[in-house]
Amino acid sequence: MGNLRLLKFYLFIATFFLAITCAKAQQTSIPEKDQYFDFAFGVGENSLTSYSLSWNQNYGLFASKKLRLGYGVRFSGLNGKEINYITAPANLTGDDATIDTLYMGKANTMALNAMINIQYQFHPKVKLGFNIDALGLGFGGEQSANFISSENTGQFPENLNAKPTSFNLLLVGDNDIGQLKSEFYLAYAVTEKAWLRAGFDMTFSEYTSNQVLTNENDRFRNKATLFFLAVSYNPF
């Protein structure tokens, strides 16, 4: 069922891109500034789903205004079952011998983050974009977990509790802390005020165990890649 759902999603994405290619775009000017609300929903392997609600504001640069930079605020979440979270701190991830696993039978992490937007609007009705969370708060309910480590010879429990890491900070790669989302996407204007977006959602989610475990570590991360669809609307 999971593979069938993903296949249907891929077909929908292909149809969406084909529609963009074939549509006759209305010639309108590219605005100097735009702002909008956005809702996105993504699906991935292992029953992973993601969602987000954000507010964004972007500014066109140079005379053409095609290159656009902006900022926003995003509330997001990730849900899944039977997920492996591995050792998160960058000083431990470079060596397989210091990587442990926190197995989550059920995961549900949420975040409220400030975000950065970069877009290239090569046509008034079509643009490519990238956004990424930079700083914020993580939250969610405490969950039971199984600790898996070759270094655990009985001094650490195999069953424990963990909760989403409460502080989020973009530091690049494994230096990142907490719950952080980024998106690569293609967007198409269906009306003057509404856009459709589709692309890849990369969500880092992180749990902190209720006690320090091997290698003095209590942070565990999952890196998920999902396909997403979104609707953006400018009510102003």
Rank of each mutant, 00 (worst) to 15 (best):
N3W: 03
L4W: 03
L11W: 07
F17C: 14
T28Y: 03
T28L: 07
I30H: 07
E32S: 10
F41M: 11
G42F: 01
N46A: 10
S47H: 13
L48I: 08
S52L: 02
L53A: 14
Q57V: 08
Q57A: 11
F62R: 08
L67F: 15
G70P: 06
R74L: 11
R74C: 10
I83K: 00
Y85G: 11
I86L: 11
I86Y: 10
T87K: 05
T93P: 02
D96I: 12
Y103K: 12
M104W: 01
K106D: 11
A107W: 03
L112T: 09
N117Q: 13
Y120K: 06
Y120N: 11
F122L: 11
P124Y: 12
K125V: 02
F130K: 01
S149I: 04
S150W: 05
T153M: 09
S166W: 06
N168P: 09
L171Y: 00
Q179M: 09
A187V: 05
A187C: 07
T191Q: 02
W195G: 01
L196I: 15
G199I: 11
D201G: 03
T203I: 13
S205A: 15
S205F: 05
E206F: 07
E206K: 05
V212A: 01
L213W: 07
N215I: 01
E216V: 06
R221L: 09
A224V: 03
L226T: 10
F228K: 00
F228M: 01
Y233H: 09
P235M: 05
